[in-house]
Design a protein around this nucleic acid. Structure first.
Lengths: 228, 228
DNA sequence: GTTCTGAAGGCTGTATACAAAATACTTGAT
DNA sequence: ATCAAGTATTTTGTATACAGCCTTCAGAAC
């Protein structure tokens, strides 16, 4: 009965695909939050959302609980769930922790990573450079994230990767806002280049230094676009 | 009738008991897992558990999803949930990440912590020493965890505290097994003493060094009690 | 005796139903 | 007209119902 009318919203619900539905709802919700389709502070109305996704409240609530533990939504007793809002301080904190984690990852990576693994990161880096040159911001941005994730993965530490990924997810939503000017973009690319050199030279100190600076710069790039 | 001031203080929670049932189930499950009442690898039968806790499957499943995102249980599609098992490598990885986080926390703490905050940690440390001297392992252990949590809290970084707490929770279950010999216990106490001195001297490098070593030692203490 | 097959039972995944709480709305009083 | 109080409606929280999948056990064929 719910599916008979899909004229509700401009957003076409392409019917949840046949993967464990559970994960499908989860990914769908995550994307909605990250892309700002569900804005920070918005209450998650279970009835509405369920109708929109074509599922009942039960699996939806389970997904919300999962996201709550992930830190993307906030549970308010007897009052449902809200998309969590991040203030300037919290964003700074997240970037600092992400920086510390990446530094640690970098130090591990230069010790345990295979040459092949490093080469793979270099390949991503080159591809990212291509995006930069042709002004493809979206793909550049995606590859940027992938590179950071890949460097962390080189450390061969699942716990580290998981925690880092969780932080990245939260930060993704923020950086969606961060409009960087052309000159800042150029410096970010330069930092990445230096990062790659340090990684290939397996220079732990230099890599850690760059990674730290890179995250510090990231903060300077986005801090003006935040209230509170 | 009621002389209630509307204290807007968010932390008005009177410890335990009156929790939103949701949190009650959650904490209950967490404790069961940490204390080994639900052993690693055990399947969580929703019917049984629900009957045991006196709740229906619906809120129970929500709590399980929450714990899954926390990393304590593992979801297997169409097959329910299992208590997650941690192999030796995963434990090592968690300890390494915890170490990196505490080092970062320590460096922040010596810069931003108030003297009062540091004094509070010292007080906990002294109390812990008292437990050590009278051989009170259980309270010693609890204070030990609290001290590490407190040091992290001194960094005044909520994200850091949250992530660290999550790791601590997972590790708690492991350390429940770790029987330390008397001589190892003594060295652990000595490390804590040095840690306190570095903190009070606000010596970032020294504190970071000790914290790193402390976690390395922790690994050496528990690694023999792990299979796989 | 072993292995394949199939039916029975149990468990999970999802939907629906119902009660309690919260929000919104209307009505009445100052 | 503003504010308060009470009612109505919406929404959350929990329980129950039901369908589909997985597991297991029994029986038959080799």
């Amino acid at each position: 009965m719910v599916n008979s009318r899909m004229s509700d919203d401009p957003e076409m619900e392409i019917k949840i695909e046949r993967q464990s539905l559970h994960d499908a709802i989860l990914n769908r919700l995550r994307d909605m939050i990250i892309e700002g389709h569900l804005p920070p502070g918005a209450r998650l109305n279970e009835g509405q959302l369920g109708a929109r996704l074509g599922v009942s409240r039960t699996p939806l609530r389970e997904a919300i609980k999962f996201l709550a533990s992930e830190g993307l939504v906030e549970l308010i007793p007897s009052r449902g769930a809200m998309v969590k809002e991040f203030g300037a301080k919290e964003v700074l904190n997240m970037l600092q922790v992400a920086g510390a984690l990446e530094q640690f990852a970098g130090r591990c990576a230069v010790e345990v990573a295979s040459d092949k693994g490093i080469a793979a990161v270099r390949a991503m880096h080159d591809e990212m450079l291509a995006c930069y040159r042709r002004g493809d911001r979206l793909d550049y941005y995606k590859l940027n994230q992938d590179i950071h994730t890949a460097i962390v993965a080189l450390a061969d530490n699942d716990t580290l990767s998981e925690i880092h990924a969780r932080l990245q997810t939260r930060l993704k939503r923020i950086r969606f806002i961060g409009h960087e000017g052309p000159e800042k973009w150029a410096s970010a690319v330069a930092e990445h280049e230096e990062m790659m050199e340090a990684l290939e030279a397996r220079d732990a100190d230099r890599l850690a230094k760059i990674l730290g600076e890179h995250l510090t710069r990231a903060w300077e790039r986005v801090k003006d676009g935040l209230e509170s």
